[in-house]
């Protein structure tokens, strides 16, 4: 029975995290898959969301900024707004330049954020991070607590998916695709390319902030490691590329598949002891990187390829 509950809890954890990555994958798909914006600072937006929501919702501790005790939902909204504002600033500067510059600038945001988290201990509690972040439903008995949170995350994924699908089919989404595939034509058709791009960048980054907030509430802790690009930026990119960028189903499938593979290999590497216990996990990361390269080279359209309108062939 205990073993069963252990497996059940593990599954709940797995699905919840896959769902949170799904939220962020939808955001990255909007930016890269649909609009062609290159965001390599996902970890930065993730950390902004996580910290903002944590500061908004925790009780007074005296160790960091906070004590506002706001409800969970308000924390999530604040996280999205904060990430969106930062994205707006970056977008204003870089959106007219080629994607490479945007990528460099997003790395910059993640880096500056790392400095702030490290230096402003009064607000962030420095390296010790913020703990005791409230999680909704945590007072429910046994596995019901994480199960309820999992359902909440999945419901959010469903709502976001529905919204983005509608947006994609609406004129708004068609303009996005037009900009990605043929910018001069979109411009000639009188579309304000910069405005559409900034919109996509803001919404996508807000979803990454939402992912950060959901993670912080789930783990009940956030520390400066949140800015580590290995776990967020890199995994998320692999998820989107493997799943198939350009369509929301692909993004969600990628999040599920890669997160499951990532967690399953963790069970194997956890068996190593001593010095190797520290090193072997990185072999796992290396292999994930290799999968990314193989998919990029051989199956560049991913598990679920983007459906292109009739009469159009694939473009590189």
């Amino acid at each position: 029975m205990d073993q069963f509950i252990g497996i059940l809890n593990y599954l709940i954890f797995l699905i919840t995290m896959a769902g949170i990555y799904g939220v962020m994958a939808l955001g990255l798909n909007l930016q890269w898959g649909l609009t062609g914006l290159f965001n390599i600072g996902v970890a930065g937006f993730f950390a902004i969301g996580a910290y903002v929501s944590a500061i908004m919702t925790t009780a007074e501790t005296g160790k960091h900024l906070g004590g506002y005790g706001m409800p969970f939902a308000l924390g999530l909204v604040a996280a999205m707004i904060a990430s969106g504002i930062i994205a707006w600033g970056i977008g204003r500067i870089c959106i007219r330049l080629r994607s490479d510059y945007l990528a460099i600038a997003t790395i910059g945001i993640a880096e500056i954020l790392r400095l702030i988290l490290k230096n402003e201990g009064w607000a962030t509690n420095g390296a010790r991070g913020i703990s005791n972040i409230p999680r909704p439903f945590e007072t429910l008995p046994g596995s019901l607590a994480p199960l309820s949170y999992m359902i909440l995350v999945l419901a959010l994924v469903a709502v976001l998916y529905w919204f983005l699908e509608r947006g994609q089919k609406a004129p708004w989404g068609r303009v996005m695709r037009a900009i990605r595939d043929n910018e001069p034509a979109a411009r000639a058709a009188g579309k304000n390319v910069e405005r559409f791009r900034i919109e996509a960048f803001i919404i996508g980054s807000a979803l990454m902030g939402l992912g950060g907030a959901l993670t912080a509430h789930f783990i009940k802790f956030v520390g400066p490691e949140a800015t580590d690009p290995l776990m967020t930026t890199f995994l998320l990119w692999v998820m989107l590329i493997v799943g198939g960028s350009g369509n929301n189903v692909g993004a969600l499938v990628g999040a599920g598949v890669i997160w499951t593979a990532w967690s399953a290999t963790e069970l194997i590497t956890a068996r190593f002891t001593g010095d190797w216990a520290v090193r072997v996990p990185f072999l796992r990361l290396f292999l994930i990187g290799l999968i990314l390269q193989i998919v990029l080279q051989k199956f560049s359209r991913g598990i679920v390829p983007e459906k292109l309108p009739e009469g159009r062939s694939e473009v590189d």
Partner: peptide, 27 residues
């Protein structure tokens, strides 16, 4: 192909190199 794919590939290489360095030389 489009050079932006190269940016993704190089980002992947960055992580692969770092992982390999950690496996070989430790952390």
């Amino acid at each position: 192909k489009s050079t932006i794919v190269l940016v993704i590939a190089s980002f992947g290489i960055a992580l692969m190199l770092r992982s390999l360095i950690r496996v070989i030389w430790g952390v």
